[in-house]
Design a protein around this nucleic acid. Structure first.
Lengths: 123, 123
DNA sequence: CTAGATGTTCAATGACCGTTGAACTAATGA
DNA sequence: TCATTAGTTCAACGGTCATTGAACATCTAG
């Protein structure tokens, strides 16, 4: 339960805050990608297609502070996961409808996000 | 079909735009009220509890431009209606989940919005 | 016509947004 | 130890947001 970064408790997640957090093309794309890969927790680096390191850091913080994602430090990385259960408990049906609709959207930067974009062979 | 003010066609309603439009306490309260009184088209004046005339005009324009509401001039008034069908067609389940969640929220200005708040006695 | 009611437009204002680049911290691994 | 990897922090910048007050338009009623 090592919880380094501040996350709002589930009961305090605010609807306007969540709507604002998702009302940005980049962040909406992020949660669409997170939803698609919900099995394997992703890192910030997986989203570099969507913006610079600095911009990503900013967006990740926004999503975390709004209660949309959970961020867990793991070594030098951050593991990102959607707070599906918390959001479903608070706003039933909401996240799923957003994800479904967002999945049909073109990416902001129009690059393909492979599901298999592991460094693979390593360096 | 007299359509004076510019509304985006249903197919062009954008999810980020809708999310941004709803990510404001005042506008979220407006659509919650509109949803509650969906039988009787409301006027801008019905929302004066939520802000000044000028602010309301601004928020109504935002909601209209995002495709969330339809605005029809009627004499000196404007009749506002939620674009339920258009939104449901484009983002299934989305609006309903937002409305349900927003209905459980406290009002921004914390005043009671009577369903029967006619000016009655006037000044 | 004059008054009143209902909204709009405009300029101004302070606040916040999203991005950038440079500098920085922290963990990994040879 | 030293370099690399992964992400953060900071100051700065231009842009947009939400609000205000004053002036304006427009329709309805008498």
């Amino acid at each position: 339960m090592t919880n380094y970064l501040p996350h709002p408790p589930a009961e305090e997640i605010s609807l306007p805050a969540v709507l604002t957090a998702l009302g940005d093309e980049t962040r909406l794309a992020m949660i669409a990608i997170l939803a698609r890969n919900s099995e394997k927790a992703m890192t910030c680096g997986q989203f570099l297609q969507l913006g610079s390191k600095t911009a990503l850091s900013y967006h990740v913080a926004k999503l975390r502070e709004a209660g949309v994602i959970h961020v867990r430090p793991d070594g030098t990385k951050r593991l990102l996961t959607l707070r599906r259960n918390d959001l479903e408990a608070r706003f039933p049906g909401f996240l799923q409808s957003v994800i479904s609709s967002a999945a049909a959207m073109p990416l902001p930067d129009a690059r393909e996000w492979n599901d298999s974009n592991e460094p693979a062979g390593g360096a």
